[in-house]
Every structure is written in structure tokens, then in C-alpha cells.
């Protein structure tokens, strides 16, 4: 892909599809919140106040306050780092492990393929969210284990994708040529095949990111991983849920809205990236 086509395709992805541009802007804002969260936040997210319990959104507290009088805006901002951090690390881990396992299965075939394939089938034999719950409970209730569980339930998708991509390239001319040139299997795989399957894998990863966020937030919504008073979107929604039936909507609406915004932006970015790398799939 020459620089000109890349530029033209970028122009297409942003120009034709304003949503992608919007997604990039939202994600930039979220990234700023994730990096500078504690500095930007107007209040300390952990400081409680007996006088401002469940205050409506106002100029002082734009998102209102929660049942302990903590400023929801500050908590939503500070939580960005944890929520995005969990999703990004889980996706990065499944990307790397899935790429490695899938490439080995696709390149060597035979028993390697059978064992790896069967293991992935076994993961897929579970309803994935339920499996993630089981893993977190077994490993111990912590943020690190939420990341591991999310990584495991994402693994089959990356692994199968990498396997299929490696499999079609295994017998291609340039790979044969590399092999004839005396390169060993691992070298052929690492320096000739894997670089070529990275771009489609990246698209897969960005499409997958939203799902990873939803999954991690779902786990913390039911009380796994993140512990109060740590600000995290899922747990904030769950804390706010008790006040809905008495009409205090802001305590669950804003953290939930932040979740939706983040997931939506990642999905749009993923679609945009797919358009950029594979113009045939434009719809």
C-alpha cells in the first residue's frame, strides 16, 4: 500500500464515515482522562461528604454525587484508567497468546493443531461470561484475575483467526522461497508469515476491545475484581442501581453512559480500521 493510497483511504475512513472521526476524538478524550485522570478530576474521588449525599447534578457537581456524597464526575474520570487499562491489557494478552498458539497450530498442523484446536473448542463449550466468572472466583477476586479471565475467553477468537490466516499462507510462493533459502520453520513463521497477518489481527483487536470493556465491567457489576471504594464504571453502576426506584438516576446513568461511550467509540474505530485496511469489506 503506497503512501498515497494510505492517505486516500484514511481520507475515506474519516471523510465518508464521520463516525470514525468522532470515535477517534472521543477516544483521545478518554485517553487523556486515563492518563491525567486524578489531576483533571475536580474533586478527590474517594472523599465522602455527609452533607451532599445523592445531590442532583448542579454547577458544583455536574454529574451529581453518590450515596456517600462523593463527586460522580470525578469518579467517572478517574475510573477511565482502570476500565480502559483492564480491557487493553486483556486484549493485548489474548492478542499475543492467541497469535502464538494460532500460528503454531496453523503452521505445523498435525498434533499441535489438534491439541490447540481442542483446547480452544473446550473454552468455546462454555457460555463465555459464565466461564469468566468461574475463573475469577477460582483464581481469587482481584483486578489482575479479571484481566486473565477476559484474556482466556477472548483467546479462541484470536487463535482461530491466526490459525486460518497462517494456514492459507503456509504454501504460498514467497513462503516456499523463504524455506528453500534455508530458513528454519520458526524463522519463516516469525519473519515471513506473522508480519503479514498482523494488520488483520489488529482490526480484530480493535473490534474486540468494546466487548472486553463490557465483559470486565459486567464482572465488576456483579462484585468481582474491583472492590469499593475504588472508582470503576461497572461497580459505580451497581452502586447507583439501588437508588433508581427512588428516582436518583444520576448515580447509575453517568458511569453507564461513560461505558457506552467508550464501547461505542472502540466499535466505530474498529469499523473504520477495517475499512482502511480492507476496502473490499466496506458496506
Amino acid at each position: 500500500m503506497s503512501i498515497v493510497t494510505l492517505a486516500r483511504n484514511t481520507g475515506y475512513a474519516f471523510g465518508e464515515n464521520r463516525l470514525t472521526l468522532m470515535a477517534v476524538i472521543i477516544l483521545a478524550v478518554l485517553a487523556l482522562c486515563a492518563i491525567f485522570g486524578p489531576t483533571i478530576a475536580p474533586y478527590d474521588p474517594l472523599v465522602t461528604s455527609a452533607t451532599t449525599k445523592l445531590a442532583r447534578p448542579s454547577a458544583l457537581h455536574p454529574f451529581g454525587t453518590d450515596a456517600l456524597g462523593r463527586d460522580i464526575l470525578s469518579r467517572v474520570i478517574v475510573a477511565t484508567r482502570l476500565d480502559l487499562g483492564m480491557a487493553v491489557s486483556a486484549v493485548a494478552l489474548s492478542f499475543v497468546v492467541g497469535l502464538a498458539l494460532g500460528s503454531l497450530a496453523g503452521y505445523f498442523g498435525g498434533w499441535t493443531d489438534r491439541i490447540i484446536g481442542r483446547s480452544m473448542d473446550t473454552i468455546m463449550a462454555f457460555p463465555l461470561f459464565v466461564l469468566a466468572m468461574g475463573i475469577v472466583v477460582a483464581l481469587g477476586n482481584s483486578v489482575a484475575n479479571i484481566i486473565i479471565a477476559t484474556m482466556i475467553i477472548n483467546l479462541p477468537f484470536y487463535c482461530r483467526f491466526a490459525r486460518a490466516e497462517v494456514n492459507v499462507r503456509r504454501e504460498l510462493g514467497y513462503v516456499e522461497a523463504a524455506r528453500m533459502g534455508g530458513n528454519g520453520s520458526l524463522r519463516v513463521l516469525l519473519s515471513h508469515i506473522v508480519p503479514n497477518i498482523l494488520p488483520p489481527m489488529m482490526v480484530q483487536a480493535s473490534l474486540n476491545m468494546g466487548w472486553a470493556i463490557l465483559n470486565a465491567a459486567g464482572l465488576s457489576f456483579i462484585g468481582l475484581g474491583v472492590r469499593p471504594p475504588t472508582p470503576e464504571w461497572g461497580i459505580m453502576v451497581s452502586e447507583g442501581a439501588s437508588y433508581i426506584i427512588s428516582g436518583e438516576w444520576w448515580a447509575f446513568m453517568f458511569p453507564g453512559g461513560a461505558l457506552v461511550l467508550a464501547v461505542f467509540s472502540f466499535n466505530m474505530l474498529g469499523d473504520g480500521l477495517r475499512d482502511l485496511l480492507d476496502p473490499r469489506k466496506r458496506v
Binding site: 459486567g218 453502576v237 442501581a241 426506584i245 428516582g247 447509575f252 446513568m253 453507564g256 461505542f264
Partner: peptide
């Protein structure tokens, strides 16, 4: 399709409670 890919189930459930109950 877009909504269901971006909204957490539990959040939609809670939104429904707020709108249709409260």
C-alpha cells in the same frame, strides 16, 4: 445492532427500570 453492540445488558435493564417503573 449498533445499540446492542455498545450497551451493557445490565445498564439497559436499569434504564428500563428507571423509565418504565419510575
Amino acid at each position: 445492532v449498533t445499540v446492542s453492540a455498545a450497551f451493557p445488558t445490565f445498564f439497559v435493564g436499569l434504564l428500563f427500570v428507571y423509565v418504565f417503573y419510575f
